[in-house]
């Protein structure tokens, strides 16, 4: 499933131009990204939480060369699915 498919499904619910809909869908993802960029978390009830985690610098190793390197301090985003989503995925709506 791609963004185009998501727009298609939304189109069936809200009858309006697909171009406008694509803009809203883009804006949804853009807004989530901006919030996380600010360090904010995004909580979508019934779906899950997107949060930013701060990772400290640590020693790592290049698995290919065995060379030791320092992995710098960085911020990564994580997604924690809600219990509802986890249950739903396991509920057997299988193909």
């Amino acid at each position: 499933m791609t963004k185009a498919d998501l727009v298609e499904v939304a189109f069936e619910k809200v009858g309006c131009s697909k171009k406008d809909l694509a803009e809203v869908v883009d804006q949804v993802f853009e807004t989530i990204k901006s919030a996380l960029e600010r360090g904010d978390k995004v909580k979508i009830s019934g779906f899950g939480n997107f949060t930013v985690r701060h990772k400290k610098a640590r020693r790592g190793r290049n698995p290919q060369t065995g060379e030791e390197i320092i992995i710098g301090e960085r911020r990564v985003m994580t997604f924690k699915p809600s219990q509802i989503l986890k249950d739903f995925v396991n509920s057997g709506v299988q193909e």
């Binding site: 499933m1 791609t2 498919d5 998501l6 619910k13 949804v28 739903f88 995925v89």
Partner: peptide, 25 residues
């Protein structure tokens, strides 16, 4: 409605075992 539909579609797609790819996200 659009936001609800969006997350619902993603959830349903996941339940079917599909992968959802959103460019830039």
């Amino acid at each position: 409605i659009i936001v609800s539909t969006l997350f619902k579609s993603i959830a349903e797609s996941l339940a079917r075992g599909e992968k959802i790819e959103i460019r830039g996200f």
